[in-house]
Amino acid sequence: MSEPVGYRRDSQDEHPPALYEGYKSTVLRSPKRLPIKINHTLTEITGPLFGHGKLQPGEDDLSIENGEEAQGQRIFVSGRVLDEDGRPVPRTLIEIWQCNAAGRYRHPIDQHPAPLDPNFVGQGRVVTSDEGEYKFTTIKPGAYPWGNHYNAWRPAHIHFSLFGPAFVTRVITQMYFPDDPLFLFDPIFNSIPDESARQRLVSKFDLDSTKPDFALSFKFNFIVRGRDATPFEE
């Protein structure tokens, strides 16, 4: 059998390091030993594929709960999932979660004194189309304070979880909104060493995909790891 074709290695400065002291919780949760490099076997080049038809209607719309409209600025978030060679990643699962328009998560440990919204849960799922496209309808999340340092605030963001075609393409990230004044002060955003990699987590306002008298729209593309060149047969 020929050897499996692996996936390209990420460059070191396009992802955050395990230890980033500005984000205090990394101090005790980052391994001290260097990770052990392994070449990709069938285990690494395969991975969970979805598309077993498990999604329910409405999982792509966070702005309505039990038929009632959530509070806040209604938005679309849409884009494509591609690999590093620009090839679409079809039928891949995207999961999102976020706080409400006031900056409050519906979660027992969130004690920020901002209102909960009975019509907003903040969780959604979609599967990409054959062309790698996805689209959510949601509410623009608010900024919120957190305990990392004095007067720390997270810039507004939506959490995104993606699988891609293989175990090694799995990524969980956060999508931000343009021109947020909190970027400068946020250690999670600034943990990414490479400036352009950081900016790629910022969505773009897109007038063309807004819906008049209904919703604004932000575009965000995901790029997952591409395949190595095909190796020679043994």
Binding site: P16, E84, I172, Q174, S191, F222
Partner: peptide, 13 residues
């Protein structure tokens, strides 16, 4: 096509 960077799942995962 630059890779999408990882970010933490945070406390509300």
């Amino acid at each position: 096509f630059g890779i999408t960077a990882s970010q933490t799942v945070g406390p509300f995962l």
